[in-house]
Simulated scan of single mutants.
Amino acid sequence: MSRQIHEFNDIIRKLRKNLFGKGPERIQTIFVNDMAISTLYGNLSPSEQFIARTVEGREMVHAARTRMIQNVYATAAPEGMEELVGAKFVHLFSDIKVEDDIAVSVFLFDRPIDQNGHLGGESDAAR
């Protein structure tokens, strides 16, 4: 995995840990043209897992997670993200499948960020 993708994954993990009290256990990211596409595994806190045992609870966790993360990114890119990829952050598209505890985030930038040919990487649990 490239250093750039490793650092990108660390930015995502730290932000989500600060926001939700728990960061993803594993992140896999690829850079394609003007996008960074991240798949995040093991996102839910024990409390969220408990709440998600019912249909209504899953819907509540889904809505809270997607709205909170989109609200955070709507105000500004996480510290260091734009400098790392050399492009301005434009928008985040994000969703989570609560039942499987998998989330996908697509980060859109104002210009290509894959110029170095780095096409993927994975980062294990937070250190």
Results as ranks from 00 to 15, higher is better:
residue 93 F to D: 09
residue 72 V to G: 01
residue 79 E to D: 13
residue 102 I to Y: 07
residue 70 Q to C: 12
residue 89 F to G: 02
residue 81 M to A: 03
residue 47 S to Q: 14
residue 83 E to K: 05
residue 87 A to N: 03
residue 96 I to G: 01
residue 46 P to L: 05
residue 98 V to E: 00
residue 57 G to A: 07
residue 72 V to H: 04
residue 68 M to P: 06
residue 91 H to S: 08
residue 34 D to S: 11
residue 56 E to G: 13
residue 97 K to Q: 13
residue 33 N to C: 11
residue 101 D to T: 09
residue 78 P to C: 03
residue 55 V to E: 15
residue 40 L to P: 00
residue 35 M to W: 11
residue 35 M to N: 13
residue 50 F to R: 13
residue 84 L to Q: 09
residue 96 I to M: 09
residue 48 E to K: 08
residue 82 E to T: 10
residue 48 E to F: 10
residue 39 T to S: 13
residue 88 K to F: 02
residue 58 R to S: 06
residue 66 T to D: 04
residue 87 A to Q: 07
residue 91 H to F: 07
residue 64 A to L: 15
residue 91 H to Y: 05
residue 47 S to V: 15
residue 83 E to C: 01
residue 50 F to C: 08
residue 50 F to S: 09
residue 100 D to M: 15
residue 103 A to N: 08
residue 74 A to T: 01
residue 76 A to G: 01
residue 45 S to Q: 08
residue 63 A to R: 15
residue 56 E to M: 14
residue 56 E to W: 13
residue 87 A to M: 08
residue 81 M to V: 07
residue 72 V to F: 02
residue 49 Q to T: 12
residue 99 E to Y: 09
residue 69 I to N: 06
residue 55 V to P: 11
residue 47 S to A: 14
residue 78 P to N: 03
residue 62 H to N: 15
residue 87 A to E: 00
residue 96 I to E: 07
residue 45 S to G: 10
residue 59 E to R: 14
residue 42 G to S: 02
residue 80 G to E: 11
residue 68 M to A: 13
residue 100 D to K: 15
residue 83 E to N: 09
residue 79 E to S: 09
residue 64 A to G: 12
residue 64 A to D: 14
residue 59 E to I: 09
residue 84 L to E: 01
residue 71 N to S: 12
residue 99 E to H: 10
residue 99 E to V: 08
residue 60 M to V: 10
residue 38 S to R: 10
residue 78 P to T: 02
residue 100 D to F: 10
residue 45 S to P: 10
residue 61 V to E: 01
residue 77 A to T: 03
residue 50 F to M: 12
residue 71 N to W: 07
residue 67 R to G: 06
residue 39 T to V: 15
residue 57 G to M: 11
residue 54 T to Y: 13
residue 35 M to Y: 14
residue 36 A to M: 02
residue 54 T to Q: 12
residue 60 M to C: 05
residue 81 M to S: 06
residue 85 V to F: 01
residue 102 I to P: 04
residue 63 A to Q: 15
residue 88 K to M: 06
residue 37 I to C: 00
residue 36 A to C: 12
residue 92 L to T: 04
residue 45 S to N: 07
residue 90 V to P: 00
residue 102 I to V: 13
residue 90 V to K: 11
residue 85 V to H: 06
residue 35 M to I: 13
residue 85 V to Q: 10
residue 79 E to C: 03
residue 71 N to V: 11
residue 55 V to H: 12
residue 39 T to R: 15
residue 67 R to D: 10
residue 81 M to K: 02
residue 102 I to K: 08
residue 54 T to A: 04
residue 83 E to D: 13
residue 73 Y to P: 01
residue 69 I to A: 01
residue 66 T to A: 00
residue 58 R to Y: 10
residue 101 D to S: 09
residue 49 Q to L: 14
residue 64 A to Q: 15
residue 90 V to T: 07
residue 64 A to I: 15
residue 62 H to T: 14
residue 52 A to W: 07
residue 63 A to Y: 14
residue 72 V to I: 14
residue 69 I to Y: 07
residue 35 M to S: 07
residue 61 V to K: 04
residue 92 L to D: 02
residue 73 Y to E: 04
residue 46 P to S: 08
residue 65 R to P: 05
residue 91 H to W: 08
residue 78 P to L: 05
residue 44 L to G: 02
residue 78 P to M: 04
residue 98 V to P: 03
residue 65 R to G: 01
residue 101 D to G: 03
